[in-house]
Design a binder for these strands. Structure first.
Lengths: 323, 323
DNA sequence: CTGAAAGCGCTTACAG
DNA sequence: CTGAAAGCGCTTACAG
């Protein structure tokens, strides 16, 4: 049987009110009484029912975490950062995925209406911007992890997409490259446009090809550039998967990396250490972003105003062998 | 303001009891009345408070998902399978990670005592077996996703580790290999022992080296075998990362794959398609396992008895270029 | 410093 | 087929 606050009160010879106070405010209770109550709580192993507390207090001590997909290569890092922070604060973390599209959104809406969580952390796919904005308008505290695209409308944590692109260009410039090929992800993502702008601002691209954030895009794009006889001495890939594909095609074509063609990726996935040659890449601080976003939301739930400006955690150029 | 059951009752001109019945059993309510109530519910956008329902009914319509780490390469697949299934059933999914060790376990215990979820899905790290077993003894429905190790004590979904190892051996045998090198993960994992037994049952290994489930282990283990002059015509790596490391060292040493040395991995991570040459590997059905485990738990919560025997979803040999 | 009582929003016997 | 009332386990004015 569940141990309730009444059991504790009875065993300690006090009222439920007093037990509740010991548990929460702590104030207004005699030292001796408090000690006795705490003893009984430990003895009985009492833990307040989250449902009851939620009902009485109108909050759930749980945050929602909404992600477009759970299988993206860096998603685990973000989730780990969020989970560690949220758990340390004694909060629960309700995971919501956009995997089933519109039905997933309906599920989120239902959980919100049910009061299942007090605040929402979100990586917002294009299709869900409206939904998330609507939740926020209805008063739900929202913090967005701004990996792809710029949404000034939300409190958010972001990284330096533009500067990351510029760092890549600077590195190539520093090693004497002047005719880069750029292979981007889908241009609908804000991050793609920012990385590209940062890069071409310093180093005009010989050629820009867009595709998906996949190894296959890396192979086909670079393969095409090669086949069409474009001249380039570097590749700036918009993520590490694209870079891996590029490396593969370059080797197959007999181009030496970095001697003939330097290659720089983006993300710094674990695999970046293991490509041949090891990949020079722009590191995105995914775990730190998860932690910071969680902290921001928790502070917000604690009463702090959510910041107007994005909290920016910088990218970092990680130099390995490919550039 | 939150729309409550009282608002609906008032607007529909019925009692809260009737609204509750329309929402839940559906039975015992006049057709006309039910229709009217449903109309009002839609109109007002009423969704029952999960906290209140949980309190009154003693359940939370939420399951807990406990994982050792969120950053393992196949974890996202499992989570996606679980999330899709759980959400489709209208349940919430509380994510619990073992990332902070003992403190994480304490957090789990607190969430359980708080009644935060009705059942637990778990990938159980060694250190947490006791905790999870204790929860089960106290009546918490538990389903274990049995990736690593065999725990007959829990209802579980498993895959064919032994047969997967045997399939790898059969493939090598079929291409005329007789002296394999085996590089395993940590022997404390049940899956490691099973894969090894399945493999050596058909094809005695020239040499067995153990290590971690990392690319680095692949490089150092195969590097050492090479340096020490061991003779082998194949490598069975216990996961794809180890296999990737092996491929790299073999190439660096001038051994052709698969001509001189065939290589087989385990898992079928996305990267397996992109190694050089593409990796032949034993696929683990991680997403399907997540789905099946979730379904099993949900059925259990619905009243079905949890199966005594593990539900086994088979591995599958995926033949690419490396063996 | 402490407690009795109302209330949070539901469900569920019980009575009709 | 329908409703009044008790109860789930807490918190929080309010009174002392």
């Amino acid at each position: 049987m569940r141990v309730t606050i009444s059991d504790v009160a009875r065993a300690a010879g006090v009222s439920k009110t007093t037990v509740s106070r010991v548990l929460n405010t702590g104030a207004e209770v005699g030292t001796g009484t408090a000690a006795r109550v705490r003893e009984v709580i430990d003895l009985l192993g009492y833990v307040p029912s989250s449902g009851a507390v939620g009902l009485a207090r109108g909050s759930s001590r749980t945050i929602g975490m909404f992600v477009p997909s759970l299988t993206w290569p860096w998603m685990g890092e973000v989730l780990q950062g969020v989970a560690d922070t949220v758990e340390a604060a004694g909060y629960g973390m309700l995971l919501l995925s956009h995997g089933r599209g519109a039905r997933s959104l309906a599920h989120v809406a239902a959980q919100v209406s049910a009061g299942a969580f007090d605040g929402l952390l979100a990586i917002v796919p294009e299709e869900a911007v409206g939904t998330v904005a609507a939740l926020r308008r209805r008063g739900m505290p929202v913090v967005v992890i701004d990996d792809h695209g710029h949404r000034p409308a939300f409190p958010s944590v972001a990284t330096t997409q533009h500067a990351g692109g510029a760092d890549a260009a600077r590195r190539l410039l520093g090693t004497g490259r002047t005719r880069p090929l750029v292979v981007t992800g889908p241009p609908r993502f804000g991050c793609v446009r920012e990385r590209l702008a940062g890069f071409t601002g310093l180093l005009p691209a010989a050629l820009v090809l867009d595709g998906e954030f996949t190894e296959e895009t890396g192979r086909t794009a670079v393969g095409r550039a090669l086949a069409e006889g474009h001249v380039f001495d570097a590749v700036f890939a918009h993520n590490d998967l694209i870079a891996a594909g590029a490396l593969r095609v370059l080797r197959a074509a007999g181009r030496r990396v970095p001697d003939d063609v330097a290659v720089i990726g983006f993300d710094d996935l674990p695999m970046a250490r293991h490509t041949e040659p090891a990949l020079t890449t722009v590191r995105q601080p995914m775990r730190a972003m998860g932690q910071a976003a969680a902290r921001m939301l928790l502070d917000g739930l604690g009463g702090a105003p959510l910041p107007e400006e994005p909290l920016v955690i910088p990218t970092e150029l990680v130099v390995r062998a490919s550039a």
